[in-house]
Design a protein around this nucleic acid. Structure first.
Lengths: 134, 134
DNA sequence: GCTTAAGTTGACGTTTACGTAAACGTGATG
DNA sequence: CATCACGTTTACGTAAACGTCAACTTAAGC
């Protein structure tokens, strides 16, 4: 287990990354194939830096939120570029705004689900107390 | 467009249901195939009642939250049965509790994402003001 | 330097969630 | 009652996101 390092620039192998995020190396290579990652290479071997860790974190969070890899790629690309032309800046603002509304809807979904869970949980606990009472 | 009704018991055809939820009839039949729905039949034709509407709503919300149809089926089955034996009740409680933790993690994911969005939005708006100022 | 572990690139397989087309049955309507 | 929209089953196709070999290269430890 050798951690590549040069001048405090910590780097990771693909299997180290996989272990850290509890995913397979296949998945990581797949994300690269889909242009979500682009690590350095040392004679064909992939070398991951901190920035790649951040990106991978974002990828996995995006997946947990149900976004496709393509959507995640576009979003990261959007945040990466940060243009200077007014039109582009406005476009980014609008895109983010639309994503935000999406997420707020999901938040509502979760809130409603959690509420229903609480109701059911309460009902079941009452039922259990009745069973204990008899 | 005939709405089947008998004694105020409103029912719907598959295409009415599809239109209402903005999905395809194929999707609805697929959910039935996967045992998430089981509508009545009138000589091979599917007849949907209010309870089916509720189930379909739950299915679509589950999907938005990123759950697989199989997970959704199991969950609905869980909520449907409501057993009376103590062991089963406790099992249901634990399962719900675990789902709840899952959802709370997603909630955290969303909160973090929204926070980051706000930061970026703020930065871009500042940049726009600078551009307007010059 | 040799063995062994780790990494690489194809390439085909798999699961999920439908899309799509064919071929046929049913039901309302002029 | 003929027609035609709507519904049904069957079955093959598809996109996404990897899993799983296979065949080969590179790196690491002794």
């Amino acid at each position: 287990m050798t951690i590549h390092s040069a001048k405090k620039k910590t780097t990771y192998s693909i299997s180290q990354l996989a272990k850290h995020f509890d995913i397979t190396t296949r998945a990581i290579r797949f994300y690269e194939d889909r242009k979500l990652l682009s690590p350095e290479r040392h004679k064909s071997h992939r070398i991951y830096r901190e920035s790649d860790l951040v990106r991978l974190k974002l990828i996995l969070r995006g997946k947990r939120l149900g976004f496709s890899l393509e959507e995640i790629r576009k979003t990261m690309e959007l945040y990466d570029t940060e243009p200077n032309e007014k039109a582009q800046l406005v476009f980014v603002l609008n895109t983010i705004s639309s994503h935000r509304k999406e997420l707020e809807l999901r938040q509502e979904d979760i809130r409603n689900t959690l509420d229903e869970m609480k109701t059911v949980t309460h009902r079941i606990k009452k039922k259990l107390q009745e069973l204990d009472g008899t």
